[in-house]
């Protein structure tokens, strides 16, 4: 191995290290902000609703961000960014789980009968719950030893993230009486991120001048 690529790699590793730190800080900041807003009584007339909505929004944002590294790698060839997928995915699950806990606990006071009735009668809640279950499975299979054991299967299982994306956007769209900007933008972002993975599009993106790092 020549000296130049080696130095190059060290610099890249350092860059990824910083990106990882930024990911942790960025992902935990909304939680701190939420706690602060609660403390300062800034959650509006219906705090429960605000908490549930914000946790859901953070979860969805993180879910979409989880799909970004692959596109960055395609365009720039900077493969180390793929290391960010794991923390981003796990934070997605964290926020999704908190979102559900706020719904079940803060809103319904863990009254199981009412929660079950509500979920069974609500398309909106059913797709949300299915998405959460899949996210749980993805989080569980992100345990390193399990990842190794699963091998090729892991990749197939984790393609379910696209299904989660679709379900979550639907969950968001169905939350309102009419189609709103938020869900529409999220839906478009998801479509673009998935499109960037279609082989023809991916090849096009990776052949742009200067995109190869060779």
């Amino acid at each position: 191995m020549s000296e130049r690529p080696g130095r190059h790699r060290t610099a890249r590793r350092r860059a990824v290290r910083w990106l990882e730190i930024a990911t942790h800080v960025g992902a935990l900041t909304p939680l701190a902000a939420l706690a602060w807003m609660f403390w300062q009584n800034q959650l509006g007339p219906v705090p429960v609703e605000t908490v549930i909505r914000l946790l859901g929004r953070y979860a969805l944002t993180l879910l979409l961000l989880t799909l970004v590294p692959t596109v960055v790698r395609t365009v720039t060839g900077f493969g180390e960014v793929m290391r960010l997928r794991r923390p981003l995915g796990l934070y997605t699950f964290l926020y999704a789980a908190l979102h559900f806990l706020a719904f079940a606990g803060l809103d319904f006071g863990f009254r199981v009968g009412l929660i079950v009735t509500t979920i069974v009668e609500s398309r909106r809640e059913i797709v949300g719950l299915v998405a959460l279950a899949i996210l749980g499975l993805l989080a569980l299979t992100s345990i390193r030893s399990l990842m190794r054991e699963l091998g090729k299967t892991w990749k197939v299982v984790h393609r379910l993230v696209y299904a989660v994306g679709g379900l979550v956007v639907l969950h968001y769209v169905w939350n309102y009486k009419e189609l709103r900007t938020g869900p529409a933008v999220a839906g478009m972002a998801l479509v673009l991120l998935v499109l960037a993975r279609v082989p023809a599009v991916r090849d096009f993106l990776s052949q742009r001048p200067g995109s190869r790092s060779s």
Partner: peptide, 21 residues
């Protein structure tokens, strides 16, 4: 009679907090 997308079995009580049937 549910809304096609959500349940109407309970309602959030504004102000007081919590839910009622």
């Amino acid at each position: 009679v549910r809304h096609p997308r959500w349940s109407q079995a309970t309602e959030r009580v504004i102000g007081e907090g919590g839910r009622r049937e």
